[in-house]
Design a protein around this nucleic acid. Structure first.
Length: 880
RNA sequence: GGGAGCUUAGCUCAGCUGGUUCAGAGCACCUGCCUUACAAGCAGGGGGUCACUGGUUCGAACCCAGUAGUUCCCA
């Protein structure tokens, strides 16, 4: 069988993914086995695969594949999120490019366009996930705006409204003047910005005096309804009861006193503009002030301002500053840095704005979700996020759930012409309900609320409704078989930035509607950054295209590369070279197989070295597998991967295969015995299984090359290897062997002796032939002509020590005595220093009195070992 | 302004209960090798005041306090 010299990922990827699909290996239906479930964090339906998804989904796939091999009924539910604001923005832009304005369309027309667009481009990202090998149960693919899922969202709204947890009211919200919608606190990003602090003089009524007020937002002056100072501020005590005149509009407003005002900031005075700042709003409420909204939803100056009407807020800011300057009302302008809120989705500067919105009360409903995390019922990994979570949940605000958009679930609230409101699913129901208080109402007079619900108000139900969309209606007792089987899910893998947006709210919804948590563990991945530590983003152009990486390095290579640099919860500095390392690893495995499959099995006796190697590797494999399993159990993904990597590359390829590899004599490879060959194939298959979650494609390919397989005998459903009893002695002995071999190779390197030239090695050991089983291994790996034991020193030989044994390599050439002496002297010095430190410790009475007995025992052993070593080095030196 | 985390080799990170010759790994680097599986490789090697200062302890990378730098969250 002729096999390519380098692994070709493309071939395996295009072969095995369709094969797995065809054989339904990803598909899960409830059965007798235990379930292992992951629901995907649904990517935006408009999204394209980026490095964050890559990381996230690779981890999920590793977990799900391993669970499948461990015998669980593994179910990974995929899907997409309708992402109301992001998607609507995209559709609006697309239509604008075609010359269609959203404002010219009816709601129905717009939604029609949106759905067409969604059907055409939505879900590209799910197709992309397949390239990376994601073994999702695609038959379960869900979309948060699937009719039945949307229905569940409305059920929740109605239910919570009925429970009086949802209310409508005028509140200060974060208004996005570009997206023309309110956004939640979490969707506001505060950025440090250079601003101008303008000191404006307000004339005190009936005097020629002025009071100076500092503001970064002079364009809101027209909305001023008071000037506020701190009651303890002596500078302004005399102004009590006076009024000031607001510039531009010449409105007379009072001076009020409130200790909210920071005496240190600016001039210690505050202009109060209740319509445009949350704190001013609170002040306005407290002091019963009027509110004047001087801005339109688009962020332009409104009619109510009485000046600059129609001007953009930022242009107005400049203009008004200029005008005030001309009127001599500006004392000074300072450059300052302050935090300004930007919309996460549109990057517009957020405007605090009063508007009528729907809210969910969070105080009571969030309590069980806080509990669940604090008592470790839901585990956050890494744990450091518990603090953040706690902090947030204890200071939670009511959740503004309405959005002034069309793409999403329209709020099921209905209004009549007399100000009555009912909440129910259909207009017919609404008609019946409204008639109770408004007998004469006509159907056409009923209006549904124009707003849709926040996207997170649907995705918080994700782990429930992907299995049973009727859960809200029917209740947990009547949940369907799927939900009962798969819920609570096992692991959730997501980014820490949506811990509150999404994770916390899923726990809330889960607790509210099933009494159970939605998942056992939350694995929070890091943020993918570039080498300079910058977050990968489209605008910076520093994010590689994952699909290009896959083309370049293979899916397995990229998966390995991604996870090599991803400690749990820490950000990862991604660099393409990691993918290269992954690709090289795949190639290494490929070539290990090329070697094995090239063996010619012959009727020959099994060499002792092979016997020993097999015994050793059996133990090594179990030892490392145990460690790997442990890493998995603690979600130390990169550690589990690195342990696998070293087991395969170092232990199997560099040591094991080199030992059992038949020799080359007269240009001809010698045959291998059947026992060794079979053992090697077994080892290799075990290793393939251990590698499979990380590298699904190459392992499946090789699985089918090691043996003829039946149709469904695939590694994806193979059994995870078991840990056998480990003989520590064997493992320890082999470490000594490795050291001896390395020392001999070292001598070769130093003395410039060809690896092909055979050497003799003699071991002087008081304990005799203690590792004689391993002699043949040393002979082979160090390329020796003989390995023998001696009671005497060997004159005229290079020496080295491993543990307490001395080794001699007699060489025909001249030994450089001075060089040897120098080397030995250095070694002696080191050992004497070491001995000294041990002896100081041992002569310290307090150490002997306080340290644990086993620690003291270890120290005594160190002492005697060092003494022996020193003695032997001194002898060697003397003999030179 | 309030809170949380981080700082260990050139880079990315381990280091779990304070105690093995404990200062580690991978990559990068240096030297020698185109040795019949693999140059995407093999063999060998060098490299760190564990951010700084103090404390606790017989003993500190690890515990405590402070300082500096840095990241994130909240206001």
């Amino acid at each position: 069988m002729e096999i390519a010299k380098t692994y070709n990922p493309k071939e395996a990827e295009t072969k095995w993914y369709p094969y797995w699909m065809d054989k339904d290996f990803f598909k899960s239906v409830p059965d007798q086995r235990k379930a292992y479930t992951i629901v995907i964090p649904p990517p935006n339906v408009t999204g394209v695969l980026h490095m964050g998804h890559m990381l996230n989904n690779t981890i999920q796939d590793v977990l799900i594949r391993r669970a499948r091999m461990l015998g669980f009924n593994a179910c990974w539910v995929p899907g997409t999120d309708h992402a109301s604001i992001a998607t609507e923005a995209k559709v609006v832009k697309l239509l604008a490019d075609q010359g269609i304005k959203k404002a010219d369309l009816s709601r129905e027309e717009f939604l029609k366009h949106a759905w067409v667009w969604k059907e055409k481009y939505g879900g590209i990202i799910l197709e992309q996930l397949k390239y990376l090998g994601a073994s999702c149960d695609w038959s379960r693919t869900r979309f948060t705006m699937d009719p039945d899922l949307s229905d569940a969202v409305l059920d929740v709204f109605i239910d919570l409204y009925t429970k009086k947890q949802i209310y409508r009211g005028v509140r200060m919200v974060n208004w996005d003047p570009l997206g023309l919608t309110a956004v939640s606190d979490e969707e506001v990003i505060h950025k440090e910005t250079n601003s101008k602090l303008v000191y404006v003089k307000y004339k005190i009524e009936n005097t020629n005096e002025y009071i100076t007020v500092a503001t970064t937002r002079p364009e809101t002056i027209m909305g001023d309804v008071a000037v506020c100072v701190n009651p303890t501020d002596e500078r302004y005590l005399s102004l009590k009861g006076k009024n000031v005149i607001v510039p531009i509009v010449n409105r007379v407003v009072p001076i009020i006193y409130d200790d909210y005002v920071d005496k240190e900031f600016g001039t210690g005075t505050l202009k109060v503009t209740p319509a445009h700042d949350i704190n001013d709003f609170n002040l306005g409420q407290k002091h019963k002030l009027q509110t004047i909204d001087v801005l339109t939803p688009e962020g332009k100056i409104s009619e109510a301002a009485g000046a600059y009407i129609g001007l953009d807020r930022f242009i107005c800011r400049k203009q008004i500053t200029k005008d005030l300057q001309e009127q001599g009302l500006i004392e000074k302008i300072e450059e300052i840095k302050n935090k300004v809120g930007y919309s996460e989705r549109t990057d517009a500067v957020i405007e605090p704005r009063l508007s009528m919105q729907w809210f969910l009360k969070m105080e009571d409903i969030s309590k069980p979700a806080l509990e669940a995390v604090l008592n470790n019922d839901v585990k956050l990994i890494p744990e450091k996020f518990i603090n953040t979570y706690k902090h947030w949940m204890e200071n939670v605000h009511d959740w503004c759930i309405s959005r002034q958009l069309w793409w999403g679930q329209q709020i099921p609230a209905w209004y009549d012409n007399k100000g009555n409101t009912v909440v129910c699913k259909t207009k017919e129901e609404a008609f019946e309900l409204l008639k109770i208080n408004n007998a004469t109402i006509k159907a056409e007079e009923i209006k549904q609320d124009e707003d849709v619900l926040d996207t997170w108000f649907s995705s918080w139900l994700w782990p429930l409704t992907v299995f049973d969309p009727n859960i809200i209606k029917n209740g947990w007792e009547n949940a369907n078989a799927d939900l009962k089987y798969y819920y609570p899910t096992n692991d959730l893998v997501t980014a820490p930035e949506i811990l509150f947006f999404w994770v916390a709210r899923m726990i809330i919804a889960g607790k509210e509607y099933t009494g159970l948590k939605p998942f056992n563990n939350v694995y929070l991945t890091g943020i993918v950054r570039d080498k300079q530590g910058r977050k990968m983003s489209k605008s910076l152009g520093n994010s590689p295209d994952p699909l290009e990486l896959i083309t370049k390095y293979g899916a397995d290579g990229v998966r390995v590369g991604m996870l090599l640099c991803s400690p749990a919860g820490n950000d990862l500095m991604f660099d393409e070279s990691y993918c290269e390392q992954g690709r090289n690893f795949a190639n290494k495995v490929w070539n290990a197989f090329r070697l094995i499959q090239g063996f010619e099995i012959g009727n020959v006796e099994q060499p002792q070295a092979s016997k020993t190697a097999i015994n050793w590797f059996e133990n090594k494999l179990s030892e490392q597998l145990e460690i790997i399993n442990d890493h998995y159990s603690k979600y130390r993904m990169s550690d589990a991967l690195m342990t696998t990597y070293k087991l395969v590359w170092d232990d199997f390829c560099a040591w094991y295969l080199e030992i059992i590899k038949p020799e080359f004599i007269d240009g001809k490879s010698q045959p291998i015995d059947k026992t060794t060959f079979n053992a090697t194939i077994n080892f290799f298959e075990s290793l393939l299984k251990i590698m499979h979650p990380w590298m699904p494609f190459i392992t499946e390919e090789l699985w089918h090359l090691t043996q003829d397989r039946t149709e469904k005998d695939c590694i994806i459903v193979a059994e995870w290897p078991e840990v056998r009893k480990i003989n520590q002695e064997t493992l320890k002995a082999f470490e000594v062997v490795k050291e001896v071999v390395t020392q001999v190779r070292n001598i070769r390197q130093q003395k410039n002796i060809s690896p092909k030239e055979k050497l003799d090695v003699k071991e002087k050991s008081d304990v005799g032939e203690h590792y004689s089983d391993f002699d043949s291994v040393i002979i082979k790996l160090a390329n020796l002509s003989s390995y023998s034991y001696t009671k005497e020193k060997v004159e005229g030989a290079f020496g080295f020590m491993v543990l307490n044994a001395e080794f001699f390599v007699p060489l025909t050439g001249n030994i450089n005595v001075a060089e040897e002496k120098d080397r030995l002297a250095k070694e002696l010095e080191y050992n004497k220093g070491f001995l000294k430190s041990v002896q100081i410790k041992l002569s310290n009475e307090r150490f002997v009195a306080n340290a644990k007995p086993e620690v003291i025992e270890v120290e005594r052993k160190k002492e005697s070992d060092a003494l022996n070593k020193i003695k032997s080095i001194e002898e060697q030196l003397a003999s030179l």
